[in-house]
Simulated assay, not measured.
Amino acid sequence: MIDFETFVFRSLVALGLGLVVGLDREFKHKPLGMRAYMLVSLGAAAVCMVSLNIAAGAEAKAVTFDLSRVVSGIVGGIGFLGAGAIMSNRTNGKLRGVGSGSLIWVVGIIGLTVGLGYVIEAVSVTLMSFLVLTIVGCLRSRFDLQENDED
């Protein structure tokens, strides 16, 4: 059972990690800003923690509760949200927002990971995501590459 203090701590961690990723996107004026990333991370963490509490209560009552279905639902729902960030230009067939769509999915997984109590792992994924965003940005600037339509 997750007590209230742990719930608040994990929620704040999820918000903070969503902020780290969201700041990059906000500064680059991408379709989704820091609020969206923070809220997706927080929402995924909260649903996961509440589900853990439901599972603990169900176990005490000898009722079956499948946490993997909850996780699967969260991942699918976040994928749907990420797909909303992707747009197609019908004249040239190119996609826009794929980078934002995939990043919103990663941030949801970060929140899910925090909600399950794997805070160090979530921090690691956040740092790796931030490094990818930073390194790709630096490479584009260094080699004078135009941003393609994936972001």
Rank of each mutant, 00 (worst) to 15 (best):
P31G: 12
G33D: 13
G33K: 04
G33T: 02
M34E: 09
M34F: 10
M34P: 06
A36L: 12
A36E: 05
L39K: 07
L42V: 10
G43S: 08
A44Q: 02
A45D: 02
A46C: 12
V47L: 15
V50N: 07
L52I: 11
N53I: 10
I54G: 08
A55L: 11
A60P: 05
A62L: 15
T64I: 05
F65E: 12
F65N: 07
D66T: 04
L67C: 06
S68K: 14
R69P: 09
R69W: 12
R69S: 11
V71H: 04
G73N: 13
G76Y: 06
G76E: 08
G77T: 01
I78F: 02
G79A: 01
G79C: 09
F80L: 14
L81C: 02
L81S: 04
L81P: 04
G82P: 05
A83G: 11
A83M: 04
A83N: 00
I86T: 05
M87K: 10
M87C: 09
N89Y: 07
R90E: 14
R90P: 11
T91Y: 13
N92E: 09
K94A: 13
K94H: 11
R96E: 14
V98R: 03
G99T: 13
S100E: 13
G101D: 05
G101P: 08
L103T: 13
I104P: 00
W105K: 07
V106Y: 00
V107Y: 01
V107T: 08
G108Q: 06
I109N: 10
I109Q: 00
I110M: 12
G111R: 03
G111Q: 06
G111A: 04
L112Q: 08
T113E: 09
V114H: 03
V114G: 08
V114P: 04
L116V: 03
V119W: 06
V119S: 02
I120T: 12
A122S: 10
V123R: 03
T126Y: 10
S129Q: 05
F130M: 14
V132T: 08
V136P: 02
